[in-house]
Computed example of a mutant assay.
Amino acid sequence: MLQKRFGKLAATTIAGSMLMAAAACGGGDETATTASPGATGTSAPAASDLKVGLAYDIGGRGDQSFNDAAAAGLDKAKTELGVGQTKELEAGSGETEAAKEERLRLLAQGGFNTIIAVGFAYSGPVKKVAAEFPDVKFAIVDDEAATGANITNLVFAEHEGSFLVGAAAALKSEKNHVGFVGGVEVPLIKKFEAGFAAGAKAVKSDIKVDVKYLSQPPDFSGFTDPAKGKTAAEGMFDAGADVVYHAAGGSGGGVFEAAKAANGKAIGVDSDQALTAAPEVRDVIMTSMVKKVDVAVLDFLKNVANGSVKSGPVVYDLKAGGVDYSTTGGHVDDIKSKLDEYKQKIISGEITVPDKVS
């Protein structure tokens, strides 16, 4: 997500509180394709007047995944919208909520009128700092718990995209055995696991799905430790799996290395990692669960510029094109029609994908 990508979270803000917070806002989530009445603010600044601050999760620009997707959205905003000044700040490993608050506060005090926080670890800090600067528009990726009149929550149906790559894994597995490596065992990453397992079992009900999390909160090193990712994936390949999906941020690089050494296949996450991972491992990445954080970031900045930005959650699901699977390398060309059939069944409601592990 991975989001690296998730490294910043406050364990107390995750789980059921995300759904409870959404309910407390009085009304359901907006989908990314829904119009946005009731915009916050009374006037729209010209795009050139926007001063955008981007606060990354651990890993920052260059993580080949979650943070890079957010950075791509900012880059598109510079090109397509002509936004004015921008500033990007990275998170440190193991930092406190106070450090995250200070990062956001420095941007707001520095005159940045639009601030985007990448990752649910910013939940508490965004809620606190947004209340201090009511004239600044805030967005947070992957969190619904931070609420406020000037906060937009950019959230995704990761379980739906993960269902598709789970189906791909099962269709491609010759051993009826696949694996999932999660960075940190938190509710957000459990959504990836739930969707992946459901997709695999929709294809082959008796398929074996191995699951391994690299760390437990409050230890979030599982998102930034390729060696741990490699060890976990090696164990799965040694045990008989032939396809392994990761939702582990920077640790995913180790999963790709293990797949390469085992002559197995891997599935990337967030970005099309067959394009962004180290060149020597790209050929083992059969597909990626693409989470279009770049689209969400660009949409948010467009809405700020045209005065239609609204507070509360905006959901980027499969129907809205917010998640999908990638086809780079041609590894899934032969099963694309089947994957697209599953996609349409999810969009139509014929298939409901679980977002929790049963």
Rank of each mutant, 00 (worst) to 15 (best):
Y56K: 03
G26R: 13
T31D: 12
M18V: 05
V295N: 07
A23P: 00
H159E: 15
Y245M: 07
A145E: 02
V186A: 13
S358Q: 12
K51P: 06
A23F: 08
G59H: 06
L339W: 08
G322Y: 10
A72L: 14
A72E: 14
I116D: 12
H331S: 15
E95S: 14
V269W: 04
D57Y: 00
A32Q: 09
F237S: 11
F196I: 13
V284N: 12
A145M: 01
S205T: 11
V244N: 05
K4V: 10
V181A: 02
I115C: 07
V126S: 14
K310Y: 06
D219R: 00
F133A: 12
H331Q: 08
S17Q: 08
A139W: 00
G307H: 03
G349S: 05
A241M: 04
G53V: 09
A278I: 01
K345S: 12
K212N: 10
Q344V: 07
D294W: 09
S311C: 04
G268P: 06
A259K: 09
S205W: 02
D75Y: 10
H159A: 14
T12A: 15
C25R: 07
A305I: 09
T96D: 01
R282A: 09
S43F: 11
V178W: 10
K208W: 00
E30M: 10
H246C: 08
E160F: 13
V284I: 11
L81D: 11
G307P: 07
I267T: 04
K345W: 08
L318V: 12
S326D: 10
K4P: 03
E88C: 05
E132A: 13
A241L: 06
T34G: 07
G349E: 03
L214A: 05
G62C: 12
G183Q: 00
S123V: 01
K4Y: 04
A121K: 04
K87N: 14
A233K: 07
A247T: 08
G182V: 07
K338E: 14
V243H: 07
V297N: 10
S93I: 13
F156S: 01
D340A: 07
E160Q: 15
R103Q: 15
R282Y: 02
M20H: 09
N67R: 10
A146C: 01
L171Q: 14
T152V: 05
V323W: 13
D225F: 11
G307D: 06
L9I: 11
D225Y: 00
S251F: 09
